[in-house]
Simulated assay, not measured.
Amino acid sequence: MLSDKQKQQFKDRLLEMKEEAEAQMEEYKEDQAKEDYENDRTGEISSVADHPGDQGTDQFERAKEQTFYEQAREKLMEVEDALKRMEEGRYGLSEKSGEPIPVERLEAMPTARYKVEEIENEANN
């Protein structure tokens, strides 16, 4: 079981992760707001594309930004769920077996829900 000090350290780390994810999502939203003024976003002076490749590059960049946004959103959901488990007294316990998750795993992945062995066993079945 985790000590109160360890729980507080993990809670602090989770709150930092939450702030990071929220900042990443906010940054994406600000970039999306610039879409009304496409030239501001791309740095182009003219609204006419110089080359068809520019359109592909812009499309690629938008898709990449959308992927980063989705990753930040998923991270935020995982962190909020871990914080909820902490409030309910279930943090650090496997959702599958109810056994304690090793501290080393929580240090590597504070949002962990399962022990590594349980994930490996599931993958092998």
Rank of each mutant, 00 (worst) to 15 (best):
M1E: 15
M1T: 15
K5L: 10
Q8W: 06
F10G: 05
F10Q: 08
R13W: 02
R13P: 01
L15G: 02
L15M: 09
L15A: 06
E16H: 10
E20L: 13
E26A: 15
D31R: 15
D31Q: 14
A33W: 00
A33N: 04
D36V: 09
D36L: 01
Y37R: 12
E38P: 03
T42K: 05
T42P: 03
T42N: 02
S47N: 11
A49W: 02
D50F: 11
D50T: 08
Q55H: 14
G56T: 05
F60A: 15
E61P: 00
E61I: 11
Q66S: 09
Y69R: 01
A72D: 05
R73H: 08
E74C: 02
L76F: 08
M77H: 05
E80L: 07
D81F: 12
D81Y: 04
L83P: 06
E87L: 09
E88G: 07
G89C: 04
G89A: 06
Y91E: 15
L93V: 08
E95K: 13
S97D: 07
S97A: 06
G98A: 15
G98F: 06
G98N: 14
P100Y: 12
P102Y: 05
E104C: 00
R105I: 12
E107Y: 03
M109I: 12
M109T: 10
M109H: 06
M109C: 10
P110E: 07
A112S: 09
R113K: 15
R113Y: 02
V116H: 08
I119N: 01
E120S: 03
E120C: 01
N121W: 03
N121H: 14
